[in-house]
């Protein structure tokens, strides 16, 4: 199954988003990598690289990120990791939920899960 990694500046935000998505897709490997190396607000390339390994069961990982340096650290972690991982250009919460629901389906691939995450960019709330 395609895995999802949620990268946020806040450890609480990352695990909270995973919690929300897991409610709708409990079988999908969902991993949170939030906070800086000292547990403060920030992102940590090493923790993200470890999260990629945790979320990868062989079919690849879609990575969802929040602000600025989350993108850079995620790109760097993807370069460092052996996992087949792609970064989604998507809002972190909505993208994660959309991708998780999609990934739970039997025909999901890495590409289609990435597309599902990125579909969330166009979601309207009103």
């Amino acid at each position: 199954m395609v895995g999802l990694l949620v990268v946020s500046h806040s450890a609480k935000a990352a695990s909270g988003i995973v919690e929300i998505a897991a409610e709708m897709a409990s079988d999908v490997p969902l991993v949170a990598a939030g906070g800086d190396p000292d547990g403060g607000i920030g992102t940590d390339a090493d923790a993200i690289a470890a999260g990629l390994d945790g979320a990868d069961d062989g079919e690849g990982v879609v990575v969802l990120v929040d602000l600025g340096s989350a993108t850079m650290n995620a790109e760097l972690a993807i370069e460092l990791s052996d996992a087949d991982a792609v970064l989604a250009d998507a809002p972190v919460l909505e993208g994660t939920v959309n991708a998780a629901v999609h990934a739970a389906g039997s025909k999901a691939t890495l590409d289609s899960t990435l597309a599902a995450a990125e579909e969330a960019r166009g979601m309207s709330k009103l």
Binding site: G42, D44, S69, E75, L76
Partner: peptide
């Protein structure tokens, strides 16, 4: 630097 700096400066400088 990548491991310790965090923020944007970690991947920018370190990477």
């Amino acid at each position: 630097l990548v491991s310790e700096v965090g923020g944007a400066a970690g991947p920018l400088y370190g990477g």
